[in-house]
Design a protein around this nucleic acid. Structure first.
Lengths: 216, 216, 216, 216
DNA sequence: TATGAATGAGCATTCATTCAT
DNA sequence: GATGAATGAATGCTCATTCAT
């Protein structure tokens, strides 16, 4: 992977996060790293290809671990790995979640990749939840309930950060709150076994660290 | 409120939903109702003001009922009123949810109003949930838990429709699924009393009508 | 027809003739008449539409007379009307003939209109030639011969001006030579009756005026 | 002449014919033969030089025979050699005729060479026609008439293929029709001696093969 | 000879907004 | 109130050409 290409990707991510993908022109990207427009188009056929490259790299990072899960092992998964480890990665690609639908309606090729991936991920999550049910970390759920739980997990994974960002500007804190959102979505379905080895409590402690305690 | 102004608003909503707010030009709006561009700018200072007007009216409709809730009466609220009655209203303003963050990053004034409203609505929902807890329709929840429940409700209200839309094109069906998403978010917190008078079951029946039964 | 629209058309024709249609940008056109780019696009959807407008107006002028021919009257046609009267009009639209094929391959809509017109004109010319044969201004010709005569007339009408322009820069003179080219194409098929009333000789005299006599 | 240079020329001709010279980028040429852009510019100073090389080679081929004519021998020339033998060569360089004027207005140096060559060829053709007149294959013609006959031959040689191409897509057939156009231009000037040895009839037979007979 | 990264002017087109009438 | 002509900066993208290696 060429250095220049990486720089374009990084600058794009930075600007897309700062001002939105749709409000960032290819010229802006070039100016921000001091290269010519032509040079950007030497590395990328068009703006959509930049987006696709960013998204593809992001997904690779995100799902590396999920794909390697041992579905035969008796282990609680969701929170330690999925919620905590990927906070930084997700923070870096916030704009994808913030603007997804506007992006999807403007870039049809990206849309196709997104849909393809959504289907794949839905299957992976379904498998994962069934595994957690199987090993009694989750209470039993019907297929119907699992489908809607996944849909809700997707919405929250995508959007809860936006909610907190609209309310205040502490991005780091908001990312932690966003993870807690996922936890609270799942909590009603967790069994006591899920908490047994202390991993989950430990994870929650980390997340709550820094959060203003608002309990009554 | 002038007739002409209403026409502009209606045409804008129609076009924003059809092609997206960011892909609809002011000229296009004008052509669709046969007025001049100059005339549109007589009624609205700029495109952002159109958006703000649309959003404000939308919220007024949505929260009319919520504001009129008698917080002293013993009544289950959420599903019959909030989930079902507003489906049509929400369907009409789908684009706001689909494009929210791209819009917010382009129109700073709209952003401020959005935030202001979000805070207000959060307070209203908090009051409502506490009321439901008070009358035992919801199980007891800490302030902390309520905050995250509201955040999750917001994410799901905003985004679950997108999830289903990416997977297939049946908009009507997807809107119903989206409402079920809200139900499944709340379900773990509902008491048996919530189901007692049958209103909730009736509402669920309506939602499930048309959905393929995927239970095991 | 708005004044501004006419100005754009005129400026376009001027520049297209000077530097070629494909080498003239919309910006050039705007700058040459001191209007903004946006304004040009207010009057024309795109560059192709400018071209189509130019071509359509040109054809209207060119074929006004041809369409009004009385095919029942005993009259020699071709040279007095077709060759002489339209010299100025054709001179003004030289670029269409000079660049036709490059234009046609870049602008598909223009291409369609061009083809449609070519077919129409071919029919008109066929009718006209048959009429001239009928009234004994032309010697008898088979359909096959007429087809190729028309094809040759088209090539010469389109291209002979280019030939002379490549050899020297006297545009006015070259246009006259170009008309003589058409005459010499037709000459072998003309009967003595065609020359009888003197109209043709008069026309030829006009054309030859200004031409250096190169006879031996 | 280097191999690499030949490859560039060949690839250019192929692409220019397929998509037009003006729509073919240097990068595209390079990609099609798997060399680098820099390398192309090692062999050719610029795009114009490629064109000039193509054109020069083309003319060399075309006029090799013409230059070798024995102007003292009594032989009918034009059709057997000029019209038939060069069909393939001309077919290969179709784009030059299709785009000539757009090219000429973009590439001034090419224009100069084109003009220079046009003058040379005009002289050659004049000499040839006079030779044919001398040996009674052509009827007597004044210098003036010869000039216009050459101009017409040039227009038809350049453009008649375009005429047929606009009307239908059978390139092979259209090339034959185009040759017949040249024949019909010359026919009125041919003497019976021109047909005597049968060569001409044979050539015409070949051309007419494949053409739908449309005689009445 | 050969590479391919880099340049930057150029292009067609869009669009929110203004303003004289 | 209403019109619609006019603005001009901005956008995504192309392409002939250069040049260090």
């Amino acid at each position: 992977m060429s250095d220049r290409k990486d720089k374009i990707i990084e600058a794009s991510i930075k600007l897309f996060n700062e001002k939105g993908c749709l409000n960032t022109s290819t010229r802006h990207i070039c100016e921000s790293i001091g290269i010519s427009v032509g040079n950007l188009y030497y590395y990328f056929k068009n703006k959509e290809e930049i987006l696709i490259e960013i998204y593809t790299r992001h997904l690779e990072t995100i799902f590396k671990e999920v794909k390697l899960i041992d579905y035969e092992s008796d282990d609680v998964f969701l929170f330690k790995d999925f919620l905590l480890n990927h906070i930084i990665e997700e923070e870096k690609h916030n704009f994808i979640y913030l603007e997804l639908n506007a992006i999807v309606s403007k870039f049809p090729k990206f849309r196709e990749i997104k849909i393809q991936n959504l289907k794949l991920n839905t299957e992976l999550l379904k498998k994962l939840i069934k595994h957690q049910i199987n090993y009694k970390y989750f209470i039993p759920l019907s297929n119907h309930e699992i489908d809607f739980l996944i849909a809700n997990a997707w919405s929250i994974g995508l959007n809860s950060i936006n909610y907190w960002n609209l309310l205040d500007n502490d991005l780091k804190l908001n990312r932690q709150k966003s993870s807690l959102n996922m936890y609270y979505l799942m909590k009603p379905y967790l069994t006591s076994k899920a908490y047994e080895n202390g991993d989950l409590d430990e994870a929650l402690d980390k997340l709550n660290k820094g959060l203003v305690n608002e309990n009554d």
